Amino acid sequence: MVGQDKLLQGKWALVTGASNGIGRAISLAFAEHGANLWLSARNRDKLHETADDAKALGAEHIIIVQADMSIKESVDELAGVVGSKVDVLVNNAGTLTESSVLKGNPDDWDRMVQVDLAAPMRLTRHLAPQISQRQDGGHIINISSVAGLEAIPGFAAYVAAKFGLTGFSKSSFEELRDKNVLVTTIYPGYVASEMTKNAPFPQDKMIRPEDIAQAALLPFRMSTRACPTDIVVRPSHKLA
């Protein structure tokens, strides 16, 4: 950003779900602040689009790794490719399916829980020890949801996955803070994206993905003596 220091100059950041929405916005914001990028998602073509735009914003090194967070072996392979070359992990990839206790399909819930909870846990387990060995340590950013803080009728399984991520994030912070790794969790309300295109609210009143990207930069604006552990971002006006 013009007139500001490069907050992530030379750092390597892995962003999952980087092909669109919040993941894409975070990737571009990090690129603007000098980060090198590992970009991961299922759609290789869209990843290349994100990579091209990140390059134009100043990212010097970008590596694309196609991965499916619903498959644990794919998560393991991603971690293996990245190895020790990561300073910032952004667990952003997520999915939402019908999750009412009256209508939802438990088989669909299994995949959602794998993507929204198990994959971030698995990737963190693989990479946190590596991040802790970096010269200046590093940071883990988990993209949760306000559904990880409060009950939402009709979304029971999704809420369960996000509450799980909340608990995992808080425990990770306590375990890793003395090992040179900090953990921040972001809890967005409705964000205008592919995931919310069928929501019963107008997208022009929703949070923009770029707003969440700015929240993801907040930890790096602070001194090494401070960590924003929980960042809640809600629409500034009621949606209905």
Rank of each mutant, 00 (worst) to 15 (best):
M112S: 08
G104F: 11
G154V: 06
M121L: 14
N180S: 13
S99Y: 04
P219Q: 04
L57T: 01
V146C: 05
G167Q: 05
Q135T: 15
D211L: 00
S132V: 07
P106Q: 00
H33A: 02
T50H: 04
H139M: 11
I71T: 12
I131K: 01
Y187N: 02
F168Y: 12
A18H: 01
D108A: 14
M1G: 15
G83D: 07
V88H: 02
R122E: 11
E175L: 10
E73L: 08
R111K: 15
A216P: 07
G137R: 01
T50C: 06
A118N: 13
E32C: 01
A13P: 06
P219S: 01
I131M: 01
Q9L: 14
L89I: 12
A54Q: 01
S223E: 05
R225F: 14
I207P: 05
K85N: 13
A216I: 02
P188R: 04
A160E: 03
K170A: 14
Q114G: 07
D230G: 08
S193R: 02
A51R: 08
V65M: 05
E77S: 15
D107Y: 10
A226D: 11
A13N: 06
V2L: 15
C227R: 06
A25G: 01
V75F: 09
E60T: 12
R125P: 00
D178A: 13
L149S: 10
Q9D: 15
M195P: 02
N180M: 03
G138V: 10
T95K: 11
N105E: 11
H61W: 10
E49N: 08
K238R: 13
N142D: 09
P153R: 06
M112Y: 03
L149K: 14
M69V: 03
D76W: 00
L8G: 08
N198Y: 06
K55T: 12
A56L: 09
L78F: 02
N198W: 00
T224V: 14
I64K: 06
V101Y: 10
F168N: 02
P235V: 04
V88T: 11
V183T: 02
R221Y: 07
V183G: 08
L14T: 11
E150V: 15
R24M: 12
P202K: 04
K238F: 14
R208A: 15
A216Q: 10
G154Q: 09
A25V: 02
E73H: 13
G17Y: 00
A13C: 13
F163V: 08
D136F: 12
D52V: 12
I26C: 04
S70E: 00
V181W: 03
E60N: 06
V191S: 01
A240W: 14
K205P: 04
N43K: 07
L217I: 01
S193I: 00
D211S: 10
T50D: 00
A215P: 07
F220L: 08
V233W: 03
M222C: 09
E77D: 14
V233M: 08
A199F: 14
L127V: 04
P188W: 00
A147Y: 08
E210L: 06
N91P: 03
D52K: 11
A59R: 10
D204Y: 08
Q66E: 15
S27C: 07
L57C: 00
P228W: 03
N92P: 09
I152R: 14
H237T: 15
E194T: 13
A18Y: 04
A118I: 15
E60R: 11
F220D: 02
L102D: 15
Q135E: 15
L37R: 03
L217C: 04
